[in-house]
């Protein structure tokens, strides 16, 4: 067991190196991708800024609190992005074009094998950096001081959030084993995850419930931020339960999908 773990860790380390190496080869692509991402976050921040030109608080959240939330939401997203971007390819075309087989003829776990093809996606780094800068800026503007427990928990919260993003992505990508392509579903789920960048308090109650219990993106940013900003634990206790549940569900669907996999054509 530990030997297998060690083997995968060594492989992951090696693949990360290859990913970084590739980054250098595609410098222009990286600059363009990172630039595009900066523009997007910049515009998102501008929208928040324009909203707060009109009112001092939205749903009980101040400008800098919303910025903190916006920035924090990028951290788990970036972490997830860094390692699991190849899932988009699964949803988009791997089943449709009968290319998925290649992960089944390698002597490593098919999921690992799949993710290994785009390990260490540089766009994720951009999200992590921008998110950290926003959180740092908003935190200092708010005069935020975290308790030791909060300092310890913060990285765990980011990690759980990343696992939630991964679970949703994996679940919807795995649907392609049944529907051949699940790109629209993945895209829609990704779109829903955008809700997590704003306070849940402004949404319709049904939407709030959906984001908490169905597609639990509330736990990727809103719940952690409420805890870090106000110390209120509220839904925090559910976080490990929801994360574990989502991950277990996604892995189950993935396994069943792989079992069902049938190659198209000959």
């Amino acid at each position: 067991m530990t030997r297998t773990m060690m083997r995968y860790l060594r492989l992951a380390w090696f693949l990360g190196g290859v990913g970084l190496h590739r980054l250098a080869a595609y410098r222009m692509d990286f600059v363009l991708g990172a630039g595009a991402f900066l523009v997007r976050v910049g515009i998102q921040t501008a929208v928040v800024g324009l909203v707060f030109r009109q009112v001092p608080a939205v749903g009980g959240w101040s400008y800098h609190e919303v910025l903190f939330l916006l920035g924090f939401s990028l951290l788990p997203r970036g972490l997830d992005h860094l390692f699991t971007d190849q899932l988009w390819e699964l949803g988009r075309k791997l089943v449709q074009r009968g290319e998925f087989y290649r992960y089944l003829v390698r002597p490593v776990d098919p999921l690992f094998s799949l993710l290994s093809e785009r390990f260490f996606h540089p766009d994720g780094l951009g999200e992590l950096v921008v998110g950290a800068v926003l959180v740092g800026y908003a935190g200092s503007e708010l005069g935020l001081s975290l308790s030791p427990v909060q300092w310890v928990l913060a990285p765990v919260l980011v990690l759980c959030g990343a696992l939630l993003h991964t679970s949703v992505k994996l679940l919807f990508a795995s649907l392609s084993f049944w529907t051949v392509t699940s790109m629209p579903a993945m895209y829609a789920a990704n779109q829903v995850s955008e809700f997590s960048a704003y306070p849940l308090d402004i949404y319709h109650p049904s939407l709030k419930a959906l984001l908490t219990w169905v597609l639990p993106f509330a736990f990727t940013a809103y719940v952690p931020c409420v805890y870090l900003l106000s110390g209120g634990t509220g839904l925090l206790g559910w976080l490990p339960v929801v994360t574990a549940g989502a991950l277990a569900l996604a892995l189950t669907v993935w396994r069943r999908g792989v079992n069902r996999y049938e190659m198209t054509g000959s």
Partner: peptide, 11 residues
Amino acid sequence: AGAAVTVFLWR
């Protein structure tokens, strides 16, 4: 989803 984000934010 896209509409909901902006609609609720501005509402």
